[in-house]
């Protein structure tokens, strides 16, 4: 058997599929942190997004409505983080941790209400995976064609979002304001832009993106919602964003790296290349991330005012 026969296009396609939820959540986190709000709540927001996407798709039979409601639910849920961290001046990490805890309680509670049983939802009648679409011509390009141009809707959205958000941060007014809010919020406030509004917006955007990541899991990659189906992906996204140097493109590449490592370990198992316990394969992507962080990723700088509370009128001047 050829030792490296699994290094094929399918590996890359699998990489993209595995990294999509991570990419989306990491993109959202990038916007959020560029505006100076630390976000560790992606895991919780994703699970909320996944749940509402599945519920809506289940009851309406329309996965596109499910997509919309999952995204929106993520956005709305993230506003709790915005309110807590920005208006109530709660430590951002604390607020994020609370949101993660709450999300699991809420979905479990609602599972029983909506489906009458916990665990996994009933299968939705139609899912976004049915809308796989090959871009004419482009999908014929060897290797890259199937990887980037013959995919399902949310995967396309994630590609577009990477480019869009990188462009958005660089070239739009709001993007400029977001970057300024994370570096020097007072400078922004003093020229008449409300820092609070910008931060709220950034958190909301991150919520939408994480909600989309959740929707991907429940109604595009699969056809039902399962409690805990995010399985730590939100935190991997956090790692991807940090090792991606707080940039859209960097987050995408880091997420791809993790997805690649994960796809690779599955193939290691399929080919049973090493005779060691399976758990060692499962560990592989995590270990690879540590090595990548230690070896390749240099000290990248977070936005200067990341996680710093912003209060305009000081109590004791």
């Amino acid at each position: 058997m050829s030792f490296l026969m699994f290094l094929n296009t399918d590996l890359l396609v699998a990489t993209v599929r595995l990294s999509t939820p991570i990419t989306l959540a990491a993109l959202g986190a990038t916007v959020c942190e560029r505006a100076g709000v630390v976000n560790i709540a992606m895991e919780g927001i994703m699970i909320i997004g996944a749940f509402f996407a599945a519920v809506t798709a289940f009851y309406t039979g329309n996965p596109w409505l499910g997509l919309a409601s999952g995204v929106l639910a993520g956005g709305i849920y993230s506003l709790i983080h915005a309110a807590a961290a920005i208006s109530l001046h709660l430590d951002h990490v604390v607020s994020g941790a609370v949101l993660n805890i709450l999300a699991f309680g809420i979905t479990r509670y609602l599972m029983v209400l909506f489906f009458g049983h916990p665990g996994t939802s009933d299968a939705i009648p139609s899912f976004l995976g049915d809308y796989q679409f090959a871009v004419p011509l482009l999908s014929k390009i060897p290797v890259l064609g199937p990887v980037f141009f013959n995919q399902t809707p949310i995967i396309y959205i994630s590609f577009i979002l990477v480019i869009f958000l990188a462009w958005f941060l660089k070239h739009t007014r709001t993007g400029l304001h977001i970057r300024a809010a994370g570096e020097h919020p007072l400078a922004l406030e003093t020229i008449g832009v409300s820092v609070y509004k910008i931060k709220y917006l950034a958190v909301f955007i991150s919520g939408l993106a994480s909600g989309l990541a959740g929707a991907y899991l429940s109604i595009e990659n699969n056809v039902s919602f399962t409690e805990g189906m995010t399985n730590g992906k939100g935190f991997i996204a956090l790692a991807a964003m940090i090792s991606g140097g707080w940039s859209a493109a960097g987050s995408f590449l880091s997420a791809l790296f993790f997805g690649f490592a994960d796809a690779l370990q599955i193939r290691f198992q399929v080919f049973r290349i090493f005779h060691v316990p399976e758990e060692l394969f499962i560990i592989f992507p995590y270990a690879a991330t540590i090595i990548a962080v230690a070896g390749f990723v240099r000290r990248s700088r977070p936005p200067k005012a990341d996680g710093v509370d912003f209060i305009i009128e000081k109590e004791n001047e």
Partner: peptide
């Protein structure tokens, strides 16, 4: 293939 989880649908699909 061992996925390491009983709840991770995405991982199961990929395997």
């Amino acid at each position: 293939v061992t996925t390491g989880s009983f709840v991770d649908q995405a991982k199961g699909k990929e395997a």
